[in-house]
Design a protein around this nucleic acid. Structure first.
Lengths: 144, 144
DNA sequence: TATTGTTATACTCTATAACTATA
DNA sequence: TATAGTTATAGAGTATAACAATA
């Protein structure tokens, strides 16, 4: 099981390198951008694409309905989203981004991207191109 | 602040692409490898390099002393580590990997790497080389 | 006194089960 | 009855504060 055949690439060492790099960056980003917690940030990001019901959001985030209910309540308390009853089905509530939520989302993105950009300042143009290429491939592969 | 100068690369879009790819993979790995929790897995990984005190481990993981104390207690209950009083300073305790802990670490690594490797099966050799190159650069940059 | 580690306690994010209100 | 959402409750993992043992 250690090697497959003479002309097949062993994926495990590549997988490990990619995994360790990704996990390392993800952890550093999380540790350095405490202003808006990841589970709230990602909900705002979903809502940027348009209003959604709480159930929708729970499904997209693969989180339980009560967890999403709490997250949305917290976002509403902070003024980042509003909840309105769906006119066509009064059981559902439509969650929408407010202007303030849009600003919070932008700031969260800015903080995260600027932290990563600061890590890249000493890279050569070739290295930046390689990083971008690898990232594009990785997203394609993960979201396939 | 949106652009720096005509001949300087804007790092923000690259940073975002790299960040989103890394966070996406990290989240998927976490969701698909529940056997050994991340905070226990990483402690075992540190101990692979040799025994350490609880304080050492807390510092390396950037976690509070009580949190590390709890983690080490759980690892000890599972038989993955042993604690012995430091002969040269009886306040300290030396934490060491057991044979069982070494096996748990290997299994945790195997599960994680195989999950990622499975995502890579449809990549071409060129794409794999690009992914590896990007990952190497990213680790260098994050751990600089 | 200062330091190492643990115990006591609390906060955050998660889950399942029970409940309310609509359909 | 079934479904959308919330409230009640509990389980992880984290933290700070208080404590015990040792230096």
């Amino acid at each position: 099981m250690t090697a497959r055949s003479r002309d097949t690439i062993d994926l495990i060492p590549i997988a490990r390198e990619v995994r360790l790099a990704a996990q390392s960056l993800a952890r550093h980003v999380k540790d350095h951008t405490p202003s808006l917690a990841p589970h709230l940030f990602t909900v705002l990001a979903w809502l940027e694409e348009g209003p959604a019901t709480a159930g929708d959001l729970a499904g997209r985030e693969r989180v339980s309905a009560p967890s999403m209910s709490r997250s949305v309540s917290e976002l509403e308390e902070r003024g980042y989203v509003s909840r309105t009853v769906d006119p066509s089905d009064a059981r559902q509530k439509i969650v929408s981004l407010t202007a303030s939520g849009r600003r919070a989302l932008s700031k969260g993105r800015k903080d995260r991207d600027e932290y990563v950009a600061a890590l890249l300042v000493n890279c050569t143009p070739d290295e930046l191109a390689d990083l971008q290429r690898g990232a594009e491939l990785l997203r394609k592969v993960v979201e396939q």
